[in-house]
Simulated assay, not measured.
Amino acid sequence: MIPFLDLKAQYASIKDEVDAAVLGVLASAQYVLGEEVAEFEREFAAYCGTKHAVAVNTGTSALHLALIAAGVGPGDEVITVPFTFVATASAVCYVGARPVFVDVEPITLTMAPEKLEAAITPRTKAIVPVHLYGQMADMGEIAAIAARHGIPVIEDACQAHGAEYRGQRAGSIGALGCFSFYPGKNLGACGEGGIAVTDNDDHATMLRILRDWGQEQRYHHVLKGFNYRMDGIQGAILRVKLRHLEDWTNARRAHAARYSHLLKGLVDLVPPVEAPGRRHVYHVYAVRSRDRDSLARTLHSAGIQTGLHYPIPVHLQKAHADLGYQSGDFPAAERAAREVLSLPIYPEMTARQVEQVAASVEQDAYVA
């Protein structure tokens, strides 16, 4: 069987380093925040090219606090995309604001800049592009539109650790950038974790206060905050993994290039495209097929696991029916939801495994 991802193989490759890091935290008894988390914050900020990084317990928490730091609150509107994991919209709802969706580009499946300006109203207080599958949205166009209207951009970079747009790292272009360290991410914790990055001193200070019960100092609660602190063990593990991230990214990119070469020219099969000027880090290698379900069945029969990212756009989810959107409102997102299928991709894959997956995809295309 070829798994969709193999976290056991990743652990085995760095076991001694991870074990030593965990034991170090246990010996120090710095279980919540602590020096390992502080060091990880410094190292991740340097990796992203930002002044500050504030570690929290999940990527959703990072988005939630980033919205608060940007001044978003009840009655405001936040523009984002419907083709994303639901957490993007949920974080907007957490602050009492309303998610306003714009469609995605048909090729990259990231925010379509040409749809953005028409969605801006006097109530728009933030724009949240999603760097989907490991590729950044068109931040040049999005940032230019946002600047004209004086609206902050918050990058949802939860799937884009190390991705780049014209040489700038994900998270470093907007007012704030948010990342998830859910275990399956390119940089994943051994549990939950997240982080927000920024160059703004005031934003960073607010994030640090908000994540720790609104405390400016112990028992001095200046804001109504949250228990969003990162565990010390996760900080230590993430420090170890960050040292390997570039090698892992290069392996993902090599596997993606091999997939794209092997799958080129297949009828009714569209591999992902790396847009000019961007560095795709392939958190997900999502192909598109009009008969996606048949392809998934073929691969399952061959012992190959696949994923669906995402089969129902957020605007059609029952939980967000109150927003009033209907089927047909965002045709590019809805078509993608019907067609995408994620193939296995992880650094520990072998070339032979990539070839086996591609051969099974080709067999389905040939039979079809």
Rank of each mutant, 00 (worst) to 15 (best):
A351E: 11
T198K: 09
V54E: 08
A97T: 05
H244M: 03
P152L: 05
C48F: 04
G24Q: 06
R278K: 13
A66E: 07
A45H: 03
A119V: 11
G73A: 11
A38G: 06
C178Q: 07
H203Y: 15
P347N: 05
L295N: 01
E114Q: 10
Y366F: 12
E246N: 10
E43G: 05
D212C: 13
F4D: 12
Y259H: 00
M206H: 04
H315S: 03
V56Y: 01
E192S: 12
E216W: 14
T198D: 10
R123H: 03
G73E: 11
V92F: 03
D202H: 09
L266Q: 07
I142H: 05
G75N: 05
A359L: 07
Q234S: 06
G265A: 04
Q363P: 13
H309C: 11
A146P: 03
L187P: 00
L269K: 08
V37Q: 03
A302V: 13
H161E: 12
K15T: 14
V22I: 15
S28N: 09
V32F: 13
D16M: 09
R292C: 12
G140I: 04
L5F: 14
S13F: 01
R169Y: 14
A170I: 00
G49A: 06
L7F: 04
L263K: 00
A359G: 08
A368D: 09
Q159G: 10
E246H: 10
A69E: 05
Y31H: 12
F101I: 10
M349Y: 02
I151L: 07
Y282Q: 00
L266W: 06
M206T: 09
A69C: 06
G174K: 04
F101N: 01
V32H: 12
G171L: 02
V22A: 09
E348D: 13
T88V: 13
P106H: 08
M111S: 11
E334Q: 05
H149I: 07
F181K: 00
W248E: 00
L116A: 09
G265E: 01
D231E: 12
A87P: 07
Q168D: 10
A163I: 02
H300W: 13
A126R: 04
A359S: 07
P122I: 07
H320G: 11
K224E: 15
V128D: 02
V281R: 01
D103G: 01
A147H: 05
F85M: 13
A12S: 09
T198H: 12
A286R: 03
Y182T: 11
A137V: 03
C178G: 02
L23E: 15
R252F: 02
Y165V: 08
M230D: 00
A89K: 09
R239F: 04
R278D: 11
P82E: 09
G134P: 02
E114D: 08
T60F: 15
